[in-house]
Amino acid sequence: MRRRRALWFWVFVGPFALGLALFTYVPLLWSVGLSFFDAHNTVTPTHFVGLGNYTAMLRDDAFTDSLKTFLVFTAFIVPVTYVFSLSLALMVNRVRRVRAFFRSVFFLPAACSYVVAALIWKMSLFSGVRFGLANTVLGWFGGDPVAWLSTPDPPWYWLVLVTVRLWLQAGFYMILFLAGLQRIDPVLYEAAAVDGARPGWTVLRHITLPQLRATSVAVVLLLVVNAFQAFDEFYNLLSDARGYPPYARPPLVYLYYVALGQGQNLGLGSAGAVILALVVVVVTVGQARWLRLGRTDGDG
């Protein structure tokens, strides 16, 4: 019987473990290996260059710029999504009837593909010509059409990039907040009311937010990691057949062009990927420590 269990354990776990090793860990280690070689157009390089790729990458303005782009994007998207999805959750939580309906409606965009949403944002909502939706609205108020994605000054492209991601992910985080809200003991609110706390800001500030602490930490962490992984909407909104503009180029987009475009500098690209992975680890661990991840709600 025990042998049988072991057999079935491997039948079920084996393929996934194998897939994980083959498609995740082997390429990961291979990439770390590549980062120490001059690997133009090859994955089996012979010319060892030590830390050459790392110094080249860290001295590259384009790479440091891409890290700045990530910081700017995070500074926009994390607070905006946090506030917006929390507001949605508070509203939906207060609705007595048809709550399931609103929950589903707000969650629906999360099921949409980033590529599709990016194309809709680019082609119809924020098209640069006068018949794009945003420009039509501007036209009603007598404004000139704006080329939303093509002008770096003023940087209107951030509006497009942030709104598309906000639309796509707010519903998902709303569900996380809803789950958190429903775990708050109603007795707390009753006690607060008895003590004379006015519903609204005071209750939110002193009861709801502290009680949502664990959820908030998880949400912020997820938002930051997701912002690090940004690729889809940037690539689909801003790239064209001839490449990618030098602005709003997050790290993954930059590395994609270095390593996988016709450049095929796989050593340099791998070095960039390793640096990026280290940054993600440091940021995540630091954030988790600082926000004391793992404490339960109400531990204060």
Partner: peptide
Amino acid sequence: WTPASQTAYQDALSRIIRNG
């Protein structure tokens, strides 16, 4: 004129045209 040269030049040209 390799892809690396092309990228460096194209980035610069984009900044010249659009950022002045």
